[in-house]
Design a protein around this nucleic acid. Structure first.
Length: 800
RNA sequence: GCGCCUGUGGCGGAACUGGCAGACGCGCUAGACUUAGGAUCUAGUAUCUGUGAUGUGCAGGUUCGAUUCCUGUCAGGCGCACCA
């Protein structure tokens, strides 16, 4: 038969839809499998050639699991709220709601042409009121449990998007989305206390089947460090508390630094003889964007505070205090003790300001560089710590500090609370009301969803206020507590809110009474395999794990972790090996590829292109090889005759079934396909094939190229859909070669490859090897020292 | 600077717990069939001063045997980045 993909593909897509072939069953007694891919935001550009790669991969997994008898949930939806959609709407002057609708329609059509086995009956859309009702509901629960709070604070503000960004959204000091400058602005924001979950977000990674780089990236982002709080006293009597990971070096603290924003600067206003100078420095530092701060990182700056000093609690020594922007207000206590001998940054600062450098750990040359090693070296110049190892000294000093009430052990995290409000239109309204008398009040749950009002002007404002603030009849409301006049919160939530729980909604997407029923959640959760991009590890993945843990705490969810297994796909690069982008002119359009080669070929190629986890360049000639392969498969359909087993192919079949089964589970799609190609070559060499074997072959290939396989399955008299047929099984005994080829080495160098019985003993193998003339020639005149024989594997003869 | 990952033909990439390096595909070469071939089929395809030797970024080490393990080093990618 001919591979007429343009006829076959729509035919089977229609049949699958008509027969509801891929809809997950609500029978909770069946073994389940929940496969998940990150839902896309429906951008105006439509599907990118990179999208089908992860989608096809988990489609293969889902199809495979379905054929193995699992009740599979493989859903899809739309991350429709948020900046990308809104920015597109503004640019094209179409209302975001309209844009979303159009883009979803286009995206869906493109996904469907790929033959992905999504359960479309469970489609979710984060911008749909029946969905965001529950996003708002979760926010209210967070608020009620003290995990959502409003706070005036310095935040990252994108000058182009005119919106506040989470720390996770600032990359290299610029906006992750638009690349514009990010400045620091003091604004009142809704915050979520993700920091309260920091330790659990680290601890619970253990035992999860996440690829290692995902785990380490999450752990690094959370940034746990163990140390101590140490209370210094200022000459004014004020307490000056610092966090340090090196309390052992306390004797070496020769000065202190507080961040420019530190409150003590104001407290000391009257005592400082150079207050003006310090304030000028603070103003200057405040003007710098984060990007500039990092740019200037090399050169340390600061101002010595004249008129006050600090007292080192361990030796009573007076030491100067500086303000400098190398100390961050938002980490630790916003103040440090500086130990120039054993900290690189302090060393640089001390050199610049001519401050003393006192060695307290021996082993380095502290006059020339800071000695930061904690593994070796003994304490010196440190009073009662002298002679101890660093690790011992740490424990000893903490004990001493605690005893005197001067300090304690402390764990710090780099992770900050999540800034969860945006001054934008296209998002979930934050369901809070501000009353002059009662302060912030949550709206009643019965009022959910709090609908996003329809507006004419949705552009962000220059004042940094949300466009919603202009909708006065919506803003003005009554206080849920006292009934008096009150105003609604006009900020909306970031897109990370809706995407933090979408995988729960899939379990029970139409439920009007709960985010999902307890039964559905208990059955489907956790997700068995979740695949997504590395770019979401510190954003979506972390946020959604946090929400899941919170929902676990309030008894909505039965599992502590939402995802059992997490993998990440590599990118598809342009032909030139660079990232695809319009400006580089190396973008490949999936619509064109499908019309030219067919969906099956595209799917197969994207799985065959290389290691799933690694990036790989697009190759127009390689995809032709995949098309050629499918055409050859179509030829098999005409070749197959009779029933039963072809003896010379039996072993190949059993081996291939084993290989494909294992490779799909191990995410090694490229070698699974290679094995199928190899089997095809074997069949072509044998020039004979039975109908039974053809059908086995087709089922193995079905997850990768489902349309063609359905067609051959039907034409060869297969019952029902190939996509729902039983996955072929193999007999381990039939994969074994009884006369394997054994490599024979002399001194580790290959001399011959001989066929030997698999059951041969070590002695027999050695004898067979020595009998070969090439081996004998290599042994000639040498003395045999050792015989290394691995039964069924190899012979190595060691001679002198 | 710190952390993680990757270096294998002309290209994408294979190689199980250390055991025939280069599976599979692309490309290329030759031939067949063709009016034609950027279609299809067949054969070949790591390198070399070629009966043999050398080859998995580079230099060492462990081993009967190393792409695989260890040490050092170079190159590329990703993440974090003044986090005390």
């Amino acid at each position: 038969m001919e591979h007429q993909f343009s006829v076959i593909e729509p035919k089977w897509q229609k049949k699958w839809e008509e027969q509801h072939a891929f809809e997950a069953k609500n029978d909770y007694t069946l073994p389940k499998y929940y496969a998940l891919v990150e839902f896309p935001y429906p951008s105006g550009q439509g599907l990118h050639i990179g999208h089908p790669r992860p989608y096809t991969a988990l489609d293969v997994v889902s199809r495979h699991k379905r054929m193995q008898g699992y009740n599979v949930l493989f859903p899809m939806g739309w991350d429709a709220f948020g900046l990308p959609t809104e920015n597109y709407a503004i640019k094209n002057k179409i209302h975001p709601a309209k844009v979303t609708e159009q883009n979803i329609a286009r995206f869906k059509k493109q996904l469907q042409m790929l033959g992905l086995s999504f359960d479309w009956s469970r489609e979710v859309d984060t911008s749909d009121p029946s969905y965001y009702k529950w996003t708002q509901w979760i926010f209210l629960q967070l608020y009620k449990h003290g995990l959502a709070y409003k706070k005036e604070m310095a935040v990252n503000f994108c000058t182009s998007c005119k919106v506040v960004l989470a720390n996770e959204e600032v990359v290299n000091g610029v906006c992750e989305r638009c690349g514009s400058e990010v400045i620091r602005k003091v604004k009142s924001q809704w915050m979520l206390k993700i920091t309260e979950y920091a330790q659990r977000l680290i601890d619970d990674l253990e035992g999860l089947d996440f690829i290692e780089r995902v785990k380490t990236q999450e752990i690094n982002w959370i940034g746990r460090s163990e140390g101590a709080l140490v209370h210094f006293k200022a000459t004014t009597g004020d307490d000056l508390c610092v966090f340090t990971t090196r309390p052992d070096t306390l004797f070496g603290a020769t000065y202190m630094v507080i961040s420019p924003e530190h409150e003590l600067l104001e407290t000391w206003k009257d005592k400082l003889t150079n207050y003006e100078e310090a304030v000028a420095y603070r103003t200057e530092a405040g003007k710098k964007s984060d990007f500039e701060r990092t740019e200037l990182a090399k050169e340390k700056t600061g101002v010595r505070l004249q008129g006050v000093a600090a007292i080192n609690p361990v030796n009573g020594q007076q030491i100067p205090i500086f303000i400098s922007d190398y100390v961050l207000a938002s980490y630790g206590t916003g103040a440090i003790m500086a130990v120039p001998a054993h900290d690189t940054r302090d060393w640089e600062f001390a050199k610049k300001f001519g401050l003393p450098i006192v060695e307290v750990v021996a082993g380095g040359d502290v006059m020339n560089e800071a000695f930061t090693d904690t593994e070796s070296g003994k304490m010196v110049n440190s009073g009662f710590l002298n002679g101890l190892e660093v690790a011992e000294a740490k424990q000893e000093i903490i004990r001493w500090l605690a005893e005197k009430g001067l300090g304690e052990k402390k764990i710090n995290y780099k992770l900050r609370d999540w800034v969860c409000s945006r001054q934008r239109y296209w998002g979930e309204p934050v369901p809070m009301v501000y009353c002059e008398h009662c302060g912030w009040q949550p709206i009643d749950e019965s009022e959910l969803p709090l609908l996003l009002p329809d507006v004419e002007a949705y552009e962000p404002t220059d004042t940094g206020e949300s466009p919603l603030s202009k909708v006065t009849d919506w803003v003005n409301t009554t206080c849920p507590k006292c009934g008096g006049p009150a105003k609604r919160e006009t900020d909306t939530m970031p897109n990370w809110a809706g995407s933090s729980w979408y995988f729960l909604r899939y379990c029970d997407p139409k439920n009007p009474d709960a985010l999902a029923s307890r039964e559905a959640l208990n059955y489907w959760m956790p997700v068995d395999w979740y695949n997504g991009g590395m770019e979401h590890v510190t954003l979506h993945l972390l946020y959604s794990r946090f929400w899941a843990k919170f929902l676990y705490d309030i008894d909505i969810l039965a599992c502590k972790e939402p995802y059992k297994k997490r993998t990440a796909h590599g990118m598809i690069l342009g032909e030139n090996g660079e990232k695809m982008s319009k400006s580089k002119g190396n973008v490949i359009n999936p619509d064109e590829i499908v019309s030219q080669f067919g969906a099956d070929t595209l799917r197969l190629y994207e799985m065959f292109i290389g290691d799933f986890e690694k990036s790989a360049p697009w190759s127009p000639s390689s995809i032709r090889g995949c098309k050629r392969f499918l055409e050859r498969v179509a030829v098999l359909a005409d070749m197959a005759k009779g029933r039963g087993v072809t003896p010379q192919l039996e072993k190949s079949f059993h081996c291939t079934i084993r290989k494909v089964t294992q490779d799909i589970a191990d995410m090694k799609f490229n070698t699974a396909i290679a094995a199928l190609m190899s089997l095809l070559n074997d069949i072509m060499d044998a020039k004979t094939l039975t109908v039974d074997e053809l059908q086995t072959y087709v089922l193995l290939l079905c997850p990768f190229a489902p349309h063609l396989c359905e067609e051959i399955w039907e034409q060869s008299g297969g019952e029902g859909l190939a996509s729902l047929a039983n996955w072929p099984t193999y007999d381990e005994a039939k994969t074994v070669e009884n006369m394997p080829e054994i490599p024979v080495q002399v001194n580790g160098k290959l001399r011959a490859v001989l066929r030997m019985p698999a059951t041969a003993s070590k002695e027999e193998m050695a004898d067979l090897a020595k009998a070969d003339e090439r081996v004998a020639a290599a042994l000639e005149g040498k003395q045999l020292v050792k015989e290394v024989v691995i039964p069924g594997k190899l012979v190595n003869l060691v001679v002198k």
